[in-house]
């Protein structure tokens, strides 16, 4: 019975979303992501743009800088320009629901990447990095590198971003099980490298004995690592998240132990391919929520990583 019910609900869902697009003659795809200052989002935008152009679409690429109002204006722009589809890495799991619903009401299907929103049936697809799984990989490697004991600090991301919380939870679901690991500082550095640098400096003054730093993304890991190097604390264990080329290089130089790669390039291109399929046939043929696992990057495989893609 479970399966039948689920199927019925699923079929209904498909019927609802399938009815909305008027299959616009307009060939514009609008790509909206957080700030391109972070290479992760720049890669997403570039990958989506390249794929859309290859499929014959015009592309408008915009950044919302994690500002919900700005995101809202950009959705309005997409509606005004009668876009065929929106590729969106959203500015917040709750605040983005209305913006995506507005686009849907205007007949524009949205394809979400990287971050999920807390409502189903509004976007056509949500292709989400398995941030929790990635964080448990990073947490496990961190616990191992710490020898399962010692004091550590955590740098968390922008509180409005769901993934900041998801990653921190993933880390703690692993680390809190080890009675020998003690978190002595936890601060948000807003995903920012410069902020992570200054936060790390002040943490070091208050907690000179920390043995490790676990960071919610790679830009913060880079900031923390630079502050640790400057303070002569070269043996402190640092773990990041994202799989950027900067952290890859730091892993190879022994300054950072590990990061979890989110396949940003692959996710962005998948979303555009699914948008194209949806516009042509009225269905992506895939479930709305698609989870993509992260891969742990250490010294063992860092040389195979480039632009958020791991070669086999």
């Amino acid at each position: 019975m479970y399966n039948k019910m689920k199927f019925a609900a699923f079929a209904l869902g498909i019927a609802c979303v399938g009815a909305s697009p008027a299959l616009a003659a307009n060939k514009l795809i609008v790509v909206i992501t957080p700030s391109h200052d972070n290479p992760f989002f720049a890669t997403e935008a570039d990958a989506a743009t390249a794929k859309a152009k290859a499929l014959g679409y015009d592309v408008l690429s915009l950044a919302h800088d994690d500002d919900a109002d700005k995101q809202n204006q950009e959705i309005d722009t997409a509606i005004a320009r009668k876009a065929a589809a929106i590729i969106l890495d959203n500015a917040g799991a709750d605040v983005s629901v209305a913006a995506v619903a507005k686009a849907k009401a205007a007949g524009i299907p949205s394809f979400l990447i990287d971050r999920e929103i807390n409502k189903s049936g509004v976007a056509v697809t949500q292709i989400v990095s398995n941030n929790y799984q990635g964080a448990t990989l990073g947490g496990q490697k961190f616990a191992e590198a710490m020898g399962e004991s010692g004091e550590y600090a955590e740098l968390t991301g922008k509180p409005s971003d769901t993934n900041a919380g998801v990653r921190s939870k993933g880390y703690h679901d692993v680390l809190d099980q080890f009675s020998g690991l003690k978190m002595v500082a936890q601060q948000s550095a807003d995903w920012s490298q410069t902020e992570a640098y200054s936060k790390m400096e002040s943490i070091l003054q208050a907690q000179p004995n920390i043995k490790g730093v676990i960071a919610g993304n790679d830009t913060m890991a880079m900031g923390a690592s630079a502050a640790l190097q400057a303070a002569g604390k070269k043996s402190v264990i640092v773990v990041g998240f994202d799989g950027s080329n900067d952290v890859r290089d730091a892993i190879e130089q022994g300054k950072i132990v590990a990061t979890s790669l989110q396949p940003a390039f692959e996710i962005a291109q998948m979303a555009v391919a699914e948008a194209d399929q949806f516009l042509k046939t009225g269905s992506t043929g895939k479930p709305e929520k698609q989870l993509i696992n992260c891969v742990l990057i250490t010294k063992a495989n860092a040389d195979k990583l480039n632009n958020f893609t791991l070669s086999p």
Partner: peptide, 28 residues
């Protein structure tokens, strides 16, 4: 244990499906 890694128990159960949870946190 007391510490165990991974999600093999959840993942091998055919009656638990990611799509039926609100988000990856609940699933986790």
């Amino acid at each position: 244990g007391p510490v165990v890694f991974g999600s093999a128990i959840r993942d091998c159960l055919p009656f638990l499906d990611f799509a039926t949870f609100v988000n990856q946190i609940e699933y986790a």
